[in-house]
């Protein structure tokens, strides 16, 4: 079964931080249409600070734990606890595993989703990051169950996350500050779903690149 080594896979988080920082202005612009306009600023600050503290040899487990700590103790807002819980629960599930195969990655994804559902009050369709995360997790599991192919499952996850992000365009916000906009929140992407799609895309690309065969 294909897998990646957990050792040194902390570099996935370095790459992810790079993607978030590259998209800082775009995320803020999306957020500015129906929110504060600071989503990109806060995300870049949190992921950037975490990357500075993750050593080159860190495992993915250690790197996600560091990222979670920074988000929860230094970023705050709504994204701090939501992504903070997601990465904390992902790191906990991965634990001391030395190899990450599709089964381990699937368990990690599901734990991350559970973490977000546990701390937040949203459900799918509310125009939040869940609209990218939920279909991505579902498609990863379904594709792997059907094909047994880790790379195909990762591709399905990435596509579902991006489609999910795009689906928020037509949704009306039900939770958070933009919920007050009602109909006026329709027609723009959700900033949280957009950053979540970036995260899952970065994971899919980075893991696919590193896949080894056992």
């Amino acid at each position: 079964m294909p897998y990646i080594e957990n050792a040194q896979a902390g570099s996935l988080i370095h790459e992810l931080a790079g993607v978030i920082i590259e998209n800082k202005a775009w995320l803020s612009e999306i957020d500015g249409k129906i929110g504060d306009g600071d989503h990109g600023i806060n995300m870049a600050k949190g992921f950037g600070r975490a990357a500075e503290r993750i050593g080159p040899d860190a495992t993915l487990t250690e790197a996600m734990q560091t990222l979670s700590d920074v988000l929860m103790s230094e970023i705050g807002g709504s994204m701090g606890p939501l992504y903070g819980m997601m990465f904390a629960d992902m790191a906990e599930t991965l634990g001391q595993r030395t190899q990450i195969d599709a089964e381990a990655f699937g368990a990690m994804l599901r734990a991350g989703l559970e973490g977000v559902l546990d701390i937040g009050a949203a459900k799918p369709g509310d125009k939040t990051l869940l609209d990218a995360l939920v279909p991505a997790v579902t498609q990863f599991d379904a594709t792997f169950a059907a094909t047994g192919d880790f790379a195909a499952a990762l591709a399905a996850m990435r596509d579902a996350a991006q489609d999910g992000r795009d689906s928020t365009q037509d949704m009306i916000a039900k939770v958070g500050r933009s919920a007050r906009l009602g109909e006026r929140s329709r027609g723009v992407l959700d900033a949280g779903a957009s950053s979540c799609a970036l995260i899952l895309t970065s994971f899919a690309d980075g893991i696919t690149k590193r896949l080894q065969s056992a």
Binding site: D36, D38, S73, G76, G77
Partner: peptide
């Protein structure tokens, strides 16, 4: 104390 218009962290 949080950032401008942004909740303080859980730790805070």
């Amino acid at each position: 104390v949080g950032e401008l218009f942004s909740s303080p962290t859980a730790k805070t």
